[in-house]
Design a protein around this nucleic acid. Structure first.
Lengths: 156, 156
DNA sequence: ATTGAAATATGTTCGTA
DNA sequence: TACGAACATATTTCAAT
């Protein structure tokens, strides 16, 4: 992945290609080619350019956490002591596999994290034994997601 | 995607396959086969089973929003009037492309959303002209993400 | 930037163990 | 489940426009 120095210029064909692949990363380039009416080689070249520009940062298989028994998602706002630097806290949070996202935020908290746990009991363990155990964490506020109703990427 | 009726049973080989594909959805199955020392046909068969079980819910190309000029991410807690039902609000939020996630949460707010905007001004527009305009939205609290320091899926 | 064609590699199915 | 072989597709490169 390259850090973008300037904005990527993409045209309508790029957008069509991206929309296909954002929905299904394994869609064959030749299928896309037939759908939008240009050659496979052209798409291949465009994808190389998009990747080189840093606009494409890879692809992922999506696993359904519920199939693995992970049904409890929550956001946790974390208050940090002044003494505790954000990077130090993040380093500790990285070691906790249940922490899927970590944001350095404006507002009440220093940090907002998203965690995924098997159930409420597991969430409680993670809160009490993992998060609260981090030095510098003074207080937390937890918001359990009862349902995730929207989940998507930037619209192209 | 199938809703999981029971927990998926996956073994070490399944995990290895998933780890490869979660990191790079386009990694050729035959490459994975060579890496872990079983035949491509076996992996193919396992992937079909994992998909049928609902554990695999597709794949995505990841686009870097910064390359498109989207640099401001924020979480917004939304207070809904009692009269406004959650599904009605979600229906309106779905129409706003800047809204990437929407959670029905416990705690202070009725809804927590994640939005992605070009800049602070764009965020302000979305807040004032889109979110606040939704009937039933009484108040919002915004937390801007100054930096996202962790972003990953469930660990397998 | 795009194309078609050639060479290489992969996806997919199937019979068998 | 896993395998290998056979067939169908896809990826990748390249010379030409």
């Amino acid at each position: 992945m390259k850090a973008p120095t300037s904005l990527a210029k993409i045209d309508g064909i790029d957008k069509k290609i991206l929309r296909f692949l954002m929905a299904d990363a394994r869609k064959p380039v030749l299928e896309i080619a037939r759908s939008i009416g240009i050659s496979g080689a052209a798409i291949h070249q465009r994808l190389r350019k998009l990747e080189a520009s840093g606009l494409l940062s890879g692809s992922k298989f999506i696993v359904n956490p519920k199939s693995l028994g992970y049904t409890t998602m929550a956001y946790i706002g974390i208050y940090l002591d002044k003494a505790m630097s954000n990077p130090m806290a993040v380093k500790q949070l990285e070691k906790i596999p249940e922490v899927l996202e970590c944001h350095y935020t404006t507002g009440n908290w220093s940090i907002l994290i998203k965690v995924l746990c098997r159930d409420n009991e597991h969430l409680m363990q993670v809160l009490n034994k993992e998060i609260q155990a981090i030095e510098g964490v003074s207080r937390t506020e937890t918001f359990i997601s009862l349902a995730q109703q929207i989940d998507r990427q930037i619209s192209i």
